[in-house]
Design a protein around this nucleic acid. Structure first.
Lengths: 269, 269
DNA sequence: TCAAAAGTGTTCTCTGTACACCCATGA
DNA sequence: TCATGGGTGTACAGAGAACACTTTTGA
């Protein structure tokens, strides 16, 4: 009765169709420039062409016909920051008629996390700059709204899923992991309760090593349990990103797949 | 440095670009044909053209350049079932290179709920048929996987968000609302505890009327509190669907917008 | 020996669950 | 009066928050 996916009365393929773009909201944790507290930062690129020229915008580009969505997100992310994401997930697809003046643009938006340590030595030049996530200027198109949504997604997901480690290296102390949670959620977390909660979740494994050199009791080092990690991503299974070898930790990229018939923990929402 | 959204080195607009489609997973509750228990049903359309001809598929179509994504979803939904959705939300965008043979197709997929009562008198013919959601045949393209993900989304969201009422009419008893939860979650729910949980959430308001004619104590009728409803959808605000006047209840369509700076309840995840 | 953070123990509150029990109606 | 589901009361278990307290290091 009605045309279904890929069987229309009228086949698309002209200049009158909507243009498909991919953009990514990239998060990293770095100290705030004035307060010194750990804060969420986002790299943006300056627009050098005309719709909205000179405004800051999310990194992205048109989708090549022969490239996966997630690959396009990872590629443009790498071209901007010179880094590989440790986490990459589709956020939402924005396609309002008037979001880009003059032309219908549908943007599949991803959000990503990169490691704090590596973000320090990230490329920054005339056309690429890092901004504090909560102190953004007026951006191009609807990118302020997109980032607001990505921020909400990051903050709510950190509360129930074990993804905070994506900001850290391969091993970390529980104090470092707690600092990530506190920076993302913008509130104090009790160290004692945080320790018990994380240990009870089973998402983290002690390496047996400790960090020496502190002027207090040496903290233990932990590593992420990758086998648990998959279950924590809920219905999302791993997906490889061709041509995106992560520098350091392996990139954890998620996309929807068949949900487990029986929930593993009670964690996925 | 790199082309950003809508400012590429190469502007798209040829037949070599990916085609943009919109599809919808539609849910309704109807009694199971053999067991008689309330079950999730999904309407599918038979493919009449060649990629995957004669297989059943999700209703949808190509995105017109001058139509909103959500409107395209609502329109194709109406063309299939003859009904208006009481809930409509974007699910995910699927764009794998080989998901459709011969052509690169990117599908923005929505999921919807329609009222059970109206679904009973929904159009069903040679090319449109309702299926039990958990007993699907092999479908066209990756539609089995898409429906699995939509099912997971519906079930997890019913657990924390007040959306079950979308399967019901304007007023309903708590037993009816509980029956929706039980059918969706596929498990028994204690009536006493369910009542207290729902009443405490404040998402429902007693109309003062009761249902007579039962051979037991007459149950009270409730109505949804629309003002609370918005907060329950988390970061998602209402969005109008032009040309989709709902037959009966107003359509609740959600799309992402700025998240509230302070979470209303603890409900949105 | 002292400061500081790591790590442990204890208590309290809140939420969800199980289940006993009473209420109001039609047959 | 009885069967049936509507509706209320209560007690128990687990999760999370608050906070006192002990441990281990470097200075």
């Amino acid at each position: 009765m009605t045309g279904t996916d890929t069987t229309p009365e009228r086949a698309p393929g002209g200049a009158s169709d909507a243009a498909l773009a991919v953009s990514t909201v990239i998060f990293a944790l770095r100290p705030h420039e004035t307060t010194g507290r750990m804060t969420l930062w986002i790299p943006l690129v300056r627009r050098t062409r005309d719709p909205q020229k000179d405004l800051w915008a999310l990194p992205g580009g048109w989708l090549p016909v022969d490239e996966e969505l997630v690959s396009a997100a990872a590629r443009t992310l790498g071209e901007t920051t010179g880094l590989a994401p440790t986490y990459l997930e589709q956020l939402y697809t924005f396609g309002e008629l008037e979001r880009s003046p003059g032309r219908r643009v549908v943007s599949v938006v991803y959000w990503a996390m990169v490691q704090s340590a590596e973000a320090e030595r990230a490329a920054e030049n005339e056309n690429v700059r890092w901004f504090v996530a909560d102190e953004l200027p007026l951006l191009a198109f609807d990118h302020n709204r997109i980032i607001d949504y990505a921020l909400w997604r990051l903050r709510t997901k950190v509360e129930y899923a074990a993804i905070a480690h994506a900001f850290l290296g391969a091993t970390f102390t529980l104090a470092e992991l707690r600092e990530v949670h506190e920076a993302v959620l913008q509130r104090h977390i009790d160290p004692a309760n945080f320790r018990r909660t994380v240990e009870a979740s089973g998402t983290v494994v002690a390496t047996g090593e400790v960090v020496a050199g502190t002027r207090h009791r040496p903290p233990r080092l932990y590593r992420y349990d990758a086998s648990i990690d998959l279950a924590d991503r809920g219905p999302l299974g791993p997906e490889s990103v061709p041509g995106t070898a992560a520098s350091g930790a392996a990139a954890a990229v998620s996309a929807p797949s068949s949900p487990p018939s029986v929930p593993h923990t009670g964690e996925q929402r």
